[in-house]
């Protein structure tokens, strides 16, 4: 069974997902960070594949991507770092990255290789829903990968319904009209979203603009859990301890 399905079957609330950029701050931090996150009670990990032109990202993730690339991170290298990860880590892992590097790796080979490693899903922010359905849905299913679709405060009710019907894994609920790490959570927007999400079947995680305990708790009132990205990337960029940061979300 895909580990994402297992997670969402067993846990319905306060799910914590952490994003970090592979190759940042140091090129070989990847496995170390994953293990620390698991040890400290994180439920789900999103590993960012760095890209030279991350248009959906704000300043923090732009900077971490730039440094990761300067450090020499590539998609090939990342997959070789993750080769034996399933001997040590049980939690679900998904990869998040822009389409172009995946395309150059060749999509089918990419799917086959990451299934072998034990990756559970993908978030490709610049792969729109209609092209996913047309070109990639069958391919992802063949390799037991969930494609995580996004919805935003301006996604219409009809489209939410359509995306929900075709979603596996979970739906990534973007908390505001924004690039990553750019705007703060807004309660009234969250409430509005919550109302729109009443009738969907897929599990939901809220992301964008969540940085601390208060934000995390707040988001968890409206969904099965929340995703923290920029704030965590900033933390490890400043050499603060992973353990301390994760603990600060729970105490």
């Amino acid at each position: 069974m895909n580990r994402l399905d297992k997670l969402f079957n067993n846990k319905k609330e306060n799910i914590l997902s952490i994003y970090f950029t592979a190759g940042f701050p140091k090129i070989d931090d990847t496995v170390k960070i994953i293990k620390e996150l698991e040890e400290n009670g994180v439920d789900l990990i999103e590993i960012g594949i760095p890209f030279s032109d991350p248009v959906a990202d704000g300043a923090t993730i732009q900077e971490s991507s730039k440094i990761a690339l300067q450090n020499g991170m590539t998609l090939k290298l990342l997959l070789s770092q993750l080769k034996n990860i399933r001997q040590e880590v049980e939690m679900p892992i998904i990869l998040m990255g822009y389409l172009n590097p995946i395309m150059q790796y060749r999509i089918e080979k990419f799917c086959a290789d990451i299934e072998k490693i034990g990756i559970d899903g993908l978030i490709v922010p610049d792969l729109p829903f209609d092209l996913f359905i047309k070109d990639y849905k069958e391919l992802f299913a063949k390799y037991n990968l969930h494609n995580i679709n996004l919805i935003t405060p301006s996604t219409s009710n009809d489209r939410i319904k359509l995306i929900d019907e075709h979603s596996t894994g979970f739906i990534y609920v973007v908390s505001s009209a924004s690039t990553t790490g750019t705007k703060q959570l807004d309660d009234s927007v969250l409430k509005n979203m919550f109302n729109k999400l009443q009738n969907i079947k897929s599990p939901t995680l809220i992301g964008f603009g969540i940085s601390d305990k208060q934000g995390f708790n707040n988001a968890c009132n409206f969904a099965n859990g929340a995703i923290i990205g920029s704030a965590f990337v900033k933390t490890i960029g400043e050499n603060m301890s992973v353990k301390e940061y994760i603990n600060s979300l729970f105490v």
């Binding site: 729109p128 092209l131 996004l150 009209a177």
Partner: peptide
């Protein structure tokens, strides 16, 4: 119908820009 000229084009945009 998807906005392609032969193999090229399309609208590879994040969901935030979809509307």
């Amino acid at each position: 119908e998807y906005g392609f000229y032969g193999n090229f084009g399309g609208a590879y945009i994040p969901e935030m820009l979809y509307p």
